[in-house]
Design a protein around this nucleic acid. Structure first.
Length: 300
DNA sequence: CTCGATCCCTGGACGC
DNA sequence: TGCGTCCAGGGATCGA
């Protein structure tokens, strides 16, 4: 579940370990998660890794052609999404590849940058310089950089549930299920509240808490629930700090009320029913839905 | 615009 | 031990 803090951790690690290296060749395994596999084989060999950045939940590997005279001009890039189980890390070529290794970039120093992804929920795409700006415009603001004014307006203009909005990459880039739930718990906001109906005070608190949660998670190298390891293969520490996510039935850290789980925007959402009360409208809706699903037979 | 449902994919947890 | 089933979940897509 790499979200913003995990991807930031991996990107920083790769920046330290592979920036400046030249890609010698590309070896592909399964390619159904790659936009245009042959573009990787055609365009990557010979280019150098100028730097590795995070963009939302993507890693943006900025490349530089051998002959390029200046580093100011944006070059081609490789966009990598780790999905649920993706790993991107350098290994000595002598080391046998792990199971589910689908892409190997041979580097000019005798190492290989390997992409491993059991579930192949990740994505990889080569982006020529001229296509990068258009691609990046599909995404919303970085949650760590968005101003208070912009954040409050973003909420005002959306009638969706706040949880769905937080997860919407075209609204905010990088927030996933864990940090959405954690920031809502800290802000005492129920995940089903309508974004536009939140008070300005709630909206401002949510932004502050979201940013705090993300910064703290980055400082602890992210959460490693099951599948996530950073570029050095070290698990993150933030999962020990989770106050809502994954804690169904366990007591709320504030009020001891058991944490509950509901599905919002198709995702498990953990919240404290006492600290994060359901708004009146949401309550009516929830009851109506319950009646309907009871007739149909249920899913859990 | 926003919603839910469905699909993608594999491995871990759990029940028997 | 082994098998079947459920579940996790980001994102694309489709119909309501």
């Amino acid at each position: 579940m790499p979200e913003l803090p995990e991807v930031e951790t991996v990107a920083r690690g790769l920046q330290m370990t592979v920036a400046g290296r030249r890609i010698v060749s590309v070896t592909l395994g399964k390619t159904d998660f790659i936009d245009d596999p042959s573009a990787l084989e055609t365009h990557l060999p010979g280019q150098s890794i100028e730097r590795v950045e995070r963009f939302g939940k993507f890693m943006l590997v900025r490349l530089r052609k051998e002959a390029a005279s200046s580093t100011d001009v944006a070059g081609d890039s490789l966009l990598v999404h780790l999905g649920m189980t993706g790993h991107l890390s350098p290994h000595p070529v002598s080391e046998p590849p792990l199971k589910h290794t689908h892409v190997r970039f041979l580097l000019d120093d005798g190492r290989e940058l390997r992409y491993t992804d059991a579930r192949r929920f990740g994505r990889m795409a080569f982006l020529p310089a001229e296509k990068l700006p258009t691609e990046l415009k599909r995404f919303g603001a970085d949650p760590l950089e968005i101003s208070e004014k912009d954040f409050v307006e973003l909420l005002q203009f959306h009638k969706s549930r706040i949880k769905a909005l937080l997860l919407d990459q075209s609204a905010l880039r990088g927030v996933g299920n864990i940090y959405a739930d954690e920031s809502l718990w800290r802000s005492r906001i129920h995940p089903m509240r309508i974004a536009a109906k939140l008070s300005g005070q709630d909206a401002r608190a949510l932004r502050k808490n979201l940013q705090a949660v993300l910064r703290e998670a980055i400082a602890l190298r992210g959460s490693s629930i099951i599948d996530f390891l950073d570029a050095d293969g070290e698990p993150g520490e933030y999962q020990r700090r989770h106050r809502a996510y994954g804690r169904e039935g366990k007591p709320c850290y504030r009020c001891k009320t058991p944490i509950r789980r509901v599905i919002v925007a198709g995702r498990s959402s953990y919240f404290c029913p006492r600290c994060q009360p359901v708004p009146r409208i949401g309550r009516k809706r929830a009851i109506r839905r319950k009646t309907v699903t009871a007739k149909r037979g249920r899913t859990s």
